[in-house]
Design a binder for these strands. Structure first.
Lengths: 228, 228
DNA sequence: CGGAAGATTGATCAGTTTCAAGCTCCGTGG
DNA sequence: CCACGGAGCTTGAAACTGATCAATCTTCCG
């Protein structure tokens, strides 16, 4: 059970009446997870979806031999695992808390009832899924059409933009970043060195400073190639 | 303008009243495309979505230097390009007719009105997008965690299953298949030879015969490796 | 202080792409 | 009717990107 104040802040639930918010609050279940704890596994039956209260959650696929590809990382306010609510009923990927996290679980049945009675909620959810599709299409594009240096450059630029500063700390461990970029920790490490050697960035531990934004943009677009 | 009979056959529109079907039919616009014709390009504003009447449509991303990654191939009855209807307004990828195709175009504004008044339509659309997300997640998994032989084996098994026979014709040119699998025509050609040499398949031109389904399944799962 | 997890570095290797050339099939025009 | 020409496909050799394996180093808690 969550408070109405917490719920009505979230974009997904914009447009609901006070009454409907109340109804929603009454079916929401709060769950907390420790760092590293599994939230659900691919193939498990999904009886509802989640919204992140605080913390960070990764959604990922695993290969037979344990290699991991992260599909998304979700933070506060973001819903995830909606797919089994509307199609199939099993989760299409795994979910794990990257840090101590508080999640709200919204059961399928009650939520679908709510959608039936409130078209704006349906449209909000359609918007969420559409944005998700856009993101996944971009991930496919990155993995298939771009090289690792381009992906890393794009990630650094994006993160700097998010943080609003050229100097920032990576907010996930480098191993996780490697998995998100579809590469290995070794390759990531080498690339950061090369970026630094070429004067694109400065880096020490999780701290990154972008020195040459134009250059990184050219790398991200595949216009420039990194010297061996 | 489409006939009601055509429309009500499609899963997406299951559950609409006769009146609503009539209304839908009145806003639908029929468009035809020749083989190879562009339907829309990434970044263009999208004023609605499409449903395939007959023909085949590919949705794809392009890299700066012209490499192509196909995201989906849609056939009769399947809707596509819904993303700009609900989020953003520009198409996230390109669309091209793979053969002579008749499409129905459903304008954004009228459709959203319809959704507001008919929850079952919203739920149907949520199901469509959810399935799409599942497919894209699977594509990411394939591209990132599996090798090309595994993807090809999976594709052949899937196609045989679709066609209901171990002997079938590829229904897209091999160049397109290579783009769908995230590889090149050369690699695809070599792999088909190797598959044949190892006795997994027989192939001549577009005709494929699966000889060793178990073996292909092992390849697809990454359990077996192809000899050099 | 000890130990484990994460990060770095070096050497090697495998899978796939790229470039280049030749082939096959087919529709077209002489 | 046959020759031409082009698109798609195949094949070979070379190059490259990124992965893997292994060892070392660092960090950060308990």
């Amino acid at each position: 059970m969550a408070t109405i104040a917490q719920i009505q802040d979230m974009a997904l639930f914009r447009g609901l009446t006070a009454e409907q918010l109340q109804e929603l609050a009454s079916i929401v279940v709060e769950k907390t997870f420790r760092r590293g704890q599994t939230i659900f596994r691919e193939g498990e039956e999904g009886k509802g979806f989640y919204v992140v209260g605080f913390g960070k959650v990764k959604i990922y696929k695993l290969s037979r031999d344990g290699k991991e590809q992260i599909l998304h990382i979700f933070g506060p306010g973001e819903p995830f695992a909606e797919v089994p609510v509307f199609a199939g009923q099993c989760y299409p990927a795994n979910a794990e808390a990257l840090e101590e996290s508080r999640l709200w679980f919204i059961p399928r049945v009650g939520f679908i009832e709510l959608i039936r009675r409130q078209p704006s909620l349906a449209l909000n959810m359609l918007a969420v899924l559409s944005r998700r599709l856009r993101q996944l299409a971009a991930l496919v594009e990155d993995l298939s059409l771009k090289e690792v240096p381009a992906r890393l450059a794009a990630y650094l630029l994006y993160t700097a933009d998010q943080k609003g500063s050229l100097e920032f700390d990576l907010d996930i461990p480098k191993t996780q970043l490697a998995n998100l970029l579809g590469t290995t920790p070794e390759t990531l490490s080498r690339l950061l060195s090369r970026f630094a050697k070429e004067g694109f960035i400065e880096s020490s531990g999780p701290k990154i400073t972008l020195l040459d934004k134009k250059g990184l943009q050219a790398l991200a677009a595949g216009l420039r190639r990194l010297p061996a």
